[in-house]
Simulated scan of single mutants.
Amino acid sequence: MKKIAVHLADGFEEIEAISIIDVLRRAEFDVDVVSMNKSMEVNGAHDITVKADTMFEDLDYTNIDMIVLPGGVSGARNLQAHEGLQKQILDFHASDKPLGAICAAPLVFGNLGLLEGKTATCYPGFESELKGAEISENTVVQSGTIVTGKGAGVAIHFALKIVEMFKGKEVADDLGKKMIVV
């Protein structure tokens, strides 16, 4: 079973995080919700607190198949500021392991130089932080092993793209139909 780590920092966009976690679990992925805080509780951008499954420092990344970053401006900035997460993202990229980010969070990849020569999307206004990327107006973009999404309204489609990456289009489409998304 594929294992995906969804990282939450204070200020995360709740719709994005919960939609991604829910869709991936429906698709029978093993999803770890990772707190980037000093406690298991993480406060969202709209005052919704989520209890994570594990702390960043307790997660064994050798068992993780993909790192996913929900957006929210403050959440994305807090993710970007975490040096340990930056190292894990760079290690994943060097190993061609998949990475995903939605809304403002693709700025983390852009500021690490991972989008050079790739196509990506993000929440409007953050394009300048996707350094070296060809900016797409599409709502969800896969460029090699990196998936980016535009924002909260496409979180389910973003998650279904991750399902498609690992389990194929037919499985993703079937799940989307069951959820009345496609």
Rank of each mutant, 00 (worst) to 15 (best):
L69P: 05
I15S: 09
N63I: 04
V141L: 07
I180P: 04
K167S: 04
T139S: 14
V163H: 01
F126K: 02
D173N: 12
T148I: 08
L107W: 00
T148M: 03
K167Q: 11
D60K: 10
L79N: 14
T145Q: 15
P124V: 03
V163P: 00
F166H: 03
A155C: 12
S35N: 12
V31P: 04
A104N: 00
S35T: 14
L59F: 08
E127Y: 06
D173E: 15
D47I: 01
K167W: 00
L112I: 12
G151R: 02
L8H: 11
I180R: 11
E83I: 09
N37C: 14
G125S: 12
L90Y: 00
F126R: 04
V182A: 13
D10L: 11
S39E: 15
G11M: 10
L114H: 10
I20S: 06
K178D: 12
G149N: 03
V33C: 11
S128Q: 15
A101P: 06
V163N: 02
I18C: 04
L90Q: 14
A152K: 04
E127M: 07
E14A: 10
V31K: 06
S19I: 08
T121D: 04
I15N: 10
D10C: 13
L114C: 07
T148V: 11
K178T: 10
L130E: 05
L115P: 05
A52L: 13
A9H: 12
K118W: 10
K131M: 07
I20Q: 03
I4W: 07
M165D: 00
M179G: 10
A159F: 07
Q142T: 12
L115W: 03
I102P: 00
Q86D: 11
A94I: 06
T49V: 14
K38T: 15
V140W: 01
L24F: 09
M66G: 02
L59Q: 05
K2M: 06
A101N: 01
L115G: 06
K167E: 02
P124A: 10
A94Y: 01
E164K: 03
M1G: 08
L112F: 11
A27N: 04
D30F: 07
E116R: 13
V23A: 09
V42I: 14
K169L: 05
V181G: 01
P70K: 02
D96L: 13
T121F: 06
D32H: 13
S95G: 03
A159L: 06
A133M: 04
Y123H: 11
I146L: 08
Q86V: 05
R26S: 04
T119M: 13
C103D: 05
V147L: 11
E83P: 02
F29R: 02
Q88P: 01
E116N: 15
N43G: 01
G84Q: 13
E13G: 04
L79K: 08
D32L: 14
P106A: 10
P98M: 05
A45S: 14
E127Q: 13
R77Y: 15
